[in-house]
């Protein structure tokens, strides 16, 4: 029987910059940051309210992909192709104001939808997410 989802990949253009974005701007916490030899590290972040769920900030390297695939994937990420997921919060207006003050780029301000109030933002690589307060 399947119990939980524990890890999810977000492909990022640069791990250092992604770490700065996800912790200092977006407010997640580092869960694992383990150097694994030259130029690579295992880097995961998460929210304190959801222990056991790790977001793996995955660099697009040529260890993992062929050169062409890596280049293509980098292009797609940069273009904002991938909507990665939804983060929920207690109060989307307050969270929106705070994140904006910290320099997070929003592509849609909080807007009432059928399932709740939602804003859209991008990470430093180009991945986009919904920030939602569910009804």
């Amino acid at each position: 029987m399947i119990t939980k989802m524990t890890h999810v990949n977000i492909y990022v253009l640069n791990q250092d910059s992604a770490l700065d974005f996800y912790t200092n701007k977006f407010g997640l916490k580092v869960i694992m940051d383990v150097p694994m030899g030259k130029d690579t590290r295992w880097l995961t972040v998460g929210t304190p309210e959801q222990p056991g769920f790790e977001i793996n900030l995955t660099p697009i390297t040529e260890d993992m992909f062929s050169k062409e695939t890596a280049e293509a994937l980098r292009d797609l990420v940069k273009k904002g192709t991938f909507g990665v997921g939804v983060f929920t919060c207690n109060d989307v207006y307050a969270t929106y104001e705070e994140l904006k003050a910290k320099g997070v780029e929003f592509t849609k301000p909080p807007t009432k939808e059928f399932y709740g109030t939602e804003a859209l933002f991008k990470d430093d690589s180009g991945n986009w997410f919904s920030l939602a307060q569910l009804v």
Partner: peptide, 19 residues
């Protein structure tokens, strides 16, 4: 973590990275 980092990293990722 220092002694056995791979105990903390799901095997599928570790394999893909060549660790």
């Amino acid at each position: 973590i220092v002694e056995s980092p791979l105990a903390f990293i799901p095997g599928c990722f570790a394999e893909k990275y060549g660790w």
